[in-house]
């Protein structure tokens, strides 16, 4: 990034610094591993269904569920790395002594986390979905034709679920920050997905739209609550 850009878009610069510092290598490796495992489970093993998938809708419902559940937890691990560890190692006191509003520093972290959640969810869904469609092209396990309207609907659902994953990640950020607790951060998306699993299977497109927007709103509200009063708070 050029010097002038750094000054005009300080937030972008800070997001870039978060990326540099996060050293995503391990997390990217685990994400790729997770995608391979999910391809095995959802595509080859048909999510454990003894009779296999009856149609593409059922198959993609499984994929969306497993991808969202997996990557909201991987994002939670990123949250512990990027936010909680800074508090635990007290490096946050270095960041807060810099000539940037604290809100901007934390916002950069939240945007970075949200981007990670969204992008990994999309990449995983595309990867696993493609594997399913390609496999079916050869062995025709699903007694149904893959149509472009299906493609459109599943892409739409994928984007909505990725958005919901961002919202859920923000919620787990908020819950984890209450006590600066790693288990709370990682358990939150796990529990949310466990309770809300029906939503991946039975939801109409409209209900998915509403619920995704709902999660993002809840996440944004909680995130803004956590940023409130941060400027004047004492850092120990």
């Amino acid at each position: 990034m050029k010097q002038s850009t750094k000054e005009v878009f300080p937030l972008l610069h800070l997001i870039q610094l978060e990326y540099k510092r996060a050293q995503l290598k391990t997390l990217v490796f685990s994400s790729m591993l997770a995608i391979l495992i999910l391809i095995f489970w959802c595509v080859i093993n048909k999510s454990g269904n003894p009779v296999g998938y009856l149609n593409y809708r059922d198959a993609f419902a499984e994929i969306h569920f497993y991808v969202s559940a997996t990557f909201s937890i991987i994002t939670a691990i990123l949250i512990t790395k990027v936010v909680l560890e800074e508090y635990r190692n007290k490096t946050i006191s270095i960041l807060f002594a810099y000539p940037h509003p604290r809100r901007r520093i934390l916002l950069a972290k939240l945007i970075f986390i949200s981007m990670f959640a969204f992008v990994t969810t999309v990449i995983a869904s595309v990867g696993i979905g493609s594997a399913l469609v390609i496999q079916n092209d050869y062995i025709h396990a699903i007694p149904e034709e893959w149509t472009s309207s299906m493609l459109l609907e599943e892409v739409l659902r994928m984007l909505l679920f990725a958005t919901a994953t961002v919202g859920i990640s923000l919620v787990s950020y908020y819950i984890g920050m209450l006590q600066k607790s790693v288990p709370a951060t990682i358990l939150t998306p796990f529990i949310i997905n466990l309770i809300g699993s029906g939503f991946y299977y039975n939801g109409s497109l409209w209900s998915v739209i509403l619920i995704s927007i709902g999660w993002v709103l809840v996440g944004l509200i909680l995130a803004s609550i956590s940023l409130k009063n941060i400027e004047k708070a004492d850092v120990q």
């Binding site: 610094l17 540099k20 510092r21 810099y98 000539p99």
Partner: peptide
Amino acid sequence: LTAYENVIMHCEYMG
């Protein structure tokens, strides 16, 4: 991070 990376990081934040 290494010593150099820590100092670079600091300078980036300090502008």
